[in-house]
């Protein structure tokens, strides 16, 4: 495509440099995608399994993940995990593991909660290498493990300086 465009117009030194520049941008974009495609959902599941001592999480609507639908930069993506729980001594969330399915490493963070929290919600900001799912796995005081999942689209900017 770039070839056609540049030959359809008078080709001179500046035009050629411009064309090369355009090509380089596309190549850079392709390289980035290839480099980041080195983690998979299985890695995330394995990581989570290690954290929870092999207990398989069950999808549960009580786990909600708030992420922007599109992150304009993967460096700083706000994330909030909320688990619907009374947070009493008898019934509370003990841990929330947050895991990425498409980062070089699956781990993001683990929040350790106590009944003093009053509400099972925690927020932070994470790095996302590319568009992927974020999984939150909550360990409850009764020993059960529940999870939720949400996708975030990460844009690769055109410039960014």
């Amino acid at each position: 495509m770039t070839q056609q465009r540049s030959t359809s117009l008078t080709l001179n030194r500046r035009g050629l440099l411009g064309a090369l520049g355009g090509g380089a941008l596309v190549a850079a974009g392709a390289g980035m995608t290839a480099r980041n495609a080195d983690a998979a959902p299985e890695d995330a599941a394995k990581w989570a399994s290690e954290l929870t001592g092999g207990r398989n999480p069950v999808d549960d609507p009580r786990v909600a993940i708030d992420l922007p639908p599109i992150a304009e930069n993967g460096n700083t993506v706000p994330v909030t995990v909320t688990v619907d729980s009374p947070m009493t001594d008898a019934d509370h969330v003990t841990k929330i593991h947050v895991v990425a399915e498409g980062n070089p490493n699956p781990g993001l963070c683990t929040f350790e909660l106590t009944p003093a929290c009053g509400k099972a919600e925690a927020s932070t900001r994470i790095r996302m290498a590319r568009t992927q799912n974020v999984v939150a796995i909550a360990e409850l005081s009764d020993g059960s493990v529940i999870s939720g999942k949400k996708e975030v689209k990460v844009t690769v900017g055109g410039c960014g300086g």
């Binding site: 350790e112 929290c117 925690a122 932070t124």
Partner: peptide, 28 residues
């Protein structure tokens, strides 16, 4: 809070620079 740990976070390298951490507490 008053000498007792009420919230902990373990961070991995995928947490953004200049970490922001927010959570809740019940006033006792």
């Amino acid at each position: 809070f008053n000498g007792k740990t009420v919230f902990t976070m373990k961070l991995e390298p995928a947490v953004s620079a200049n970490p922001y951490i927010a959570f809740f507490q019940r006033a006792t």
